[in-house]
């Protein structure tokens, strides 16, 4: 297997799929000539100039036009620049893309993808650091994929590009340069299928994106103390793989849910509630949710680090769950 970065995996996926399917094209801000603000499209520079292009900074029409283009038979991939800016054009997503098929009684195929960077990085502060996937989990009508490795972005994006439903893909900024193994041969990853990134017996950690890697670091540390974490990467949030989580909790009897988005009403609350409804008898301790503190992201590195969850939160939570055992 070759070892490539997350953004290389993303780039080669788009390239392979554009060669295979001539209806695929991709547009957004800063992708055509710059290769994306975080280099997501770096490997695509100079390729398909007619099908990879820059747009004005006009989010409402960028997102809404993806819907129109899909309805006339094309497969647009729109880059949303920063997840934060989804809010500037959000009516095109929550009131149009997410509803049109349902409102029209199942007419049309909405094969479109909105994708781009999210998450905390280097003091980007309150308007460039958000993780807002929960909002799209809350409003029905779009599938959500959140890959954490080069392998996952390729397999999930391929599936998205061959499906006929709208998909939003969040890529944590810290992941683009991360390397990982990617097979030479083609593979697809189905939606709703979690990946156990690390098997363990003592505590189940359900997580996604950057927090997968933080949880794996925590697991390494805790191993020395005899605590074994099972780290489950959901990979897709809509739909999410309830069965894998329940099966794991039946084994470990303890559950931590770790995400970078705000703790209050973050998607961890949905998972926690579902597990207590459907696997209450298997729980030996209260479920612990880890998420950002409920404030906008502050600028100062000191403040940013204070409100953003990392491996330390996972270690602390795990020790708390194992107390008295």
């Amino acid at each position: 297997m070759k070892v490539i970065t997350f953004s290389e995996a993303l780039g080669e996926t788009i390239l392979e799929e554009m060669e295979r399917d001539h209806t695929i094209f991709t547009y957004g801000e800063d992708i055509g000539k710059q290769g994306g603000i975080f280099g997501a499209y770096k490997s695509l520079l100079g390729k398909f100039p007619d099908r990879i292009f820059d747009t004005p900074i006009s989010e409402e029409v960028i997102y809404g036009s993806a819907l129109g283009a899909a309805l006339v038979g094309m497969r647009p991939i729109v880059e949303f620049h920063f997840a934060d800016f989804l809010f500037t054009g959000i009516q095109s997503i929550t009131l149009q893309i997410e509803k049109i098929r349902y409102m029209t009684g199942g007419q049309g195929k909405l094969h479109l993808i909105l994708r781009g960077p999210d998450g905390v990085s280097n003091s980007a502060a309150a308007q460039h650091s958000e993780s807002i996937e929960t909002i799209f989990m809350h409003v029905p009508g779009i599938k959500i994929i959140i890959p954490s490795t080069p392998y996952d972005i390729k397999g999930l994006l391929k599936t998205a590009l061959r499906s006929n439903d709208p998909v939003i893909c969040f890529e944590h900024k810290s992941l683009y340069a991360q390397k990982g193994e990617v097979p030479e041969e083609e593979y697809l990853i189905p939606f709703g299928k979690a990946d156990i990134k690390r098997p363990g017996q003592d505590i189940t950690v359900v997580t996604m994106s950057r927090m997968v890697h933080e949880s794996l670091k925590a697991a390494q540390e805790l191993e020395k103390e005899g605590i074994n974490l099972e780290v489950i990467d959901l990979r897709t949030l809509v739909p999410w793989d309830k069965e894998t989580v329940i099966k794991s909790v039946q084994k470990t009897n303890r559950l931590i849910i770790a995400h970078e988005t705000w703790r209050r009403a973050g998607w961890g609350a949905e998972i926690a509630s579902t597990i207590q409804e459907e696997a209450f008898d298997f729980l030996d301790a209260p479920i612990i949710r880890i998420g950002a503190r409920n404030v906008p992201m502050p600028f100062s590195p000191v403040l940013q680090n204070y409100v953003t969850p990392d491996k330390h939160n996972v270690v602390t939570a795990a020790k708390q769950l194992m107390e008295g055992i």
Binding site: V61, G68, A69, L71, M74, P76
Partner: peptide
């Protein structure tokens, strides 16, 4: 709400 959708249809037609 329909304006961006029509623009997208136009974009799709052009593509």
């Amino acid at each position: 709400g329909g304006l961006p959708i029509a623009v997208g249809a136009g974009l799709g037609i052009k593509m």
